[in-house]
């Protein structure tokens, strides 16, 4: 019985990588091909020299950012969740908090099959909701536009990310204040004293995460030492 489950799980994982790779490659072809197809319809193809110049001017930064995102977020997302999240995007403002919240809600442990399943379900659901909302929004663009762009509602929609992170902060800080206090103070001080860093907020996640992991590791070691001491 247990062996059957293991075989089933190994097969699932193997096929996840095959499907993930195939659909990612198809998506890449579609994404690169679409501008040429649109250009063909509009009667003018992309200017490749301008594209190259633009890539070297602004794109390189995003390559570095993508490498960092891949290394940091893949362990949180798992393999299936990873493929899906990098296809559907909106990682920081939606997919990562969504997957972390789901994982926490069902108490799934990192690296376990349960975590892999929950993360994939969570990201697939989240992506489908976004696709549905955007499709409905585009379909109902004319009647919706005056409501969504009502000046009274603008501050609300300008603050979706703070609203998300405020809720998540309470949820995670309350049990881990001893860890959170360090990156929170250091990041606040950095942004206060070097306001220019505000333009690189997504890059600042890397040192902030490293600080948090470093502090967590110190506490983890201390706890192990204390547990050993208590057992002796």
């Amino acid at each position: 019985m247990e062996q059957n489950k293991n075989t089933e799980w190994t097969n699932y994982n193997k096929h996840t990588h095959i499907i993930g790779r195939v659909v990612s490659v198809i998506m890449l072809i579609m994404l690169i091909g679409a501008p040429f197809l649109m250009g063909h319809y509009l009667g003018a193809y992309p200017d490749l020299r301008a594209t190259m110049n633009g890539f070297f001017a602004v794109g390189i930064v995003w390559v570095v950012s993508s490498v960092a995102e891949f290394l940091i977020y893949t362990p949180m997302l798992g393999s299936g969740g990873g493929y899906l999240a990098f296809i559907t995007g909106n990682l920081i403002n939606m997919k990562i908090p969504c997957a972390v919240n789901a994982r926490d809600m069902v108490d799934a442990k990192t690296g376990t099959p349960e975590n892999e399943i929950i993360s994939t379900i969570s990201i697939a659901t989240s992506s489908l909701v976004t696709i549905l909302v955007l499709a409905l929004g585009v379909l109902l663009m004319v009647p919706l536009q005056p409501i969504l762009q009502n000046p009274a509602l603008q501050p609300a929609f300008d603050n979706v990310v703070p609203a998300l992170f405020g809720a998540m902060a309470y949820k995670y800080y309350r049990k881990n204040m001893h860890i959170a206090i360090f990156p929170l103070i250091i990041m606040s001080a950095l942004f206060i004293f070097v306001p220019a860093l505000m333009g690189s907020t997504s890059f600042m996640i890397i040192p902030s995460g490293a600080i948090a992991i470093g502090v967590a590791y110190v506490f983890h070691k201390k706890k192990i030492a204390a547990d050993k001491g208590g057992n002796q």
Binding site: P97, Y173, I179, A180, P183, S208, G209, A210, I213, A216
Partner: peptide, 10 residues
Amino acid sequence: TAMFIGLVST
């Protein structure tokens, strides 16, 4: 969890 706390703190 720490990495996520780092993200939110940033």
